[in-house]
Computed example of a mutant assay.
Amino acid sequence: MTATTSTLTGNVHLRVLRPSDAEPMRAAYHRNRDHLAPWEPDRAEEFFTAAGQGKVIASKLDLHAVGSEVPWVLVEEDRIIGAITLTGIVRGPFLSAHLGYWVDREVNGRGIGSAAIAFAVDFARQELGLHRLQAATLPHNTASQKILQRAGFHTIGLAPSYLKIAGTWQDHVLYQHILY
């Protein structure tokens, strides 16, 4: 798959995750640990170390190499300020993937998440030839829901006990974007 770098807004750009991102990812997750905790699975302490991030990155890059994931980071002035990923890429008659993302608490409200999602949608359509993207949010995550809706995603339903987030199985609102 194409190793893409793109300017999103101002001095924020997006690029594919690299093995050398272990320490910058550790720093980003450390800065945002409390901010992300309500929206993510419980994480082992190792996840918040450079070694732990190295393992996560290696796994993501293995999946990228076989075409089932595209992991990008959002970078501002050489500092990682978020991530966006297409996961579970399925070919054949489904031509679909899941979209997930997060943005650093310090840069929320600047349109970075919206720009990253718009980029990922275009990439999924143009570069991967996908027909559909899906995303899921907790019912009370109205900020992410608004961003997804502005990007062309539509609600397809409520999935009970969909993901184990912050230590409990939680319902999620499911969204899809039909790309063509």
Rank of each mutant, 00 (worst) to 15 (best):
A3D: 12
S6P: 00
T7G: 01
G10E: 10
L14Y: 07
L14H: 03
R15T: 03
V16I: 14
L17S: 08
R18D: 13
S20A: 15
A22E: 06
E23P: 02
P24T: 12
A28M: 07
Y29W: 13
H30S: 13
R31M: 04
R31T: 05
N32S: 07
N32H: 02
D34T: 06
H35A: 13
H35K: 05
L36P: 01
E40Y: 03
P41V: 03
P41K: 01
P41S: 03
F47W: 11
F47N: 05
F48E: 01
T49R: 02
G52C: 05
Q53A: 03
G54K: 03
V56A: 11
V56G: 03
I57F: 10
I57M: 08
I57N: 07
A58N: 04
K60M: 15
L61C: 01
D62I: 07
D62M: 11
L63A: 15
A65L: 12
V66W: 08
G67P: 09
V70M: 10
V70K: 01
V70Q: 08
W72C: 15
W72M: 14
V73N: 12
V73T: 15
L74E: 10
V75T: 11
E76K: 14
D78S: 15
D78I: 10
R79A: 15
I81D: 07
G82N: 11
I84V: 15
T87W: 10
I89E: 05
V90P: 01
V90Y: 02
V90C: 09
R91E: 12
P93E: 10
L95I: 05
H98N: 15
Y101A: 02
W102F: 09
D104T: 08
D104V: 06
D104P: 06
R105H: 14
R105F: 08
N108I: 12
G111H: 03
I112D: 03
I112T: 09
S114K: 06
A115C: 04
A115D: 02
I117W: 00
A118E: 06
A120T: 00
V121F: 03
D122S: 06
R125L: 12
Q126I: 08
Q126F: 02
Q126R: 14
L128N: 00
L128W: 00
L130I: 01
R132K: 13
L133G: 00
Q134A: 14
A135W: 04
T137K: 05
T137H: 09
L138A: 04
L138W: 06
P139W: 11
N141S: 09
T142N: 12
T142E: 14
S144G: 10
K146M: 13
R150H: 12
G152E: 02
F153R: 01
H154N: 14
A159D: 13
P160A: 11
P160C: 06
Y162F: 13
K164R: 15
K164A: 11
W169G: 06
Q170A: 12
H172S: 09
L174A: 06
Y175I: 02
Q176P: 04
H177M: 07
I178A: 11
I178E: 08
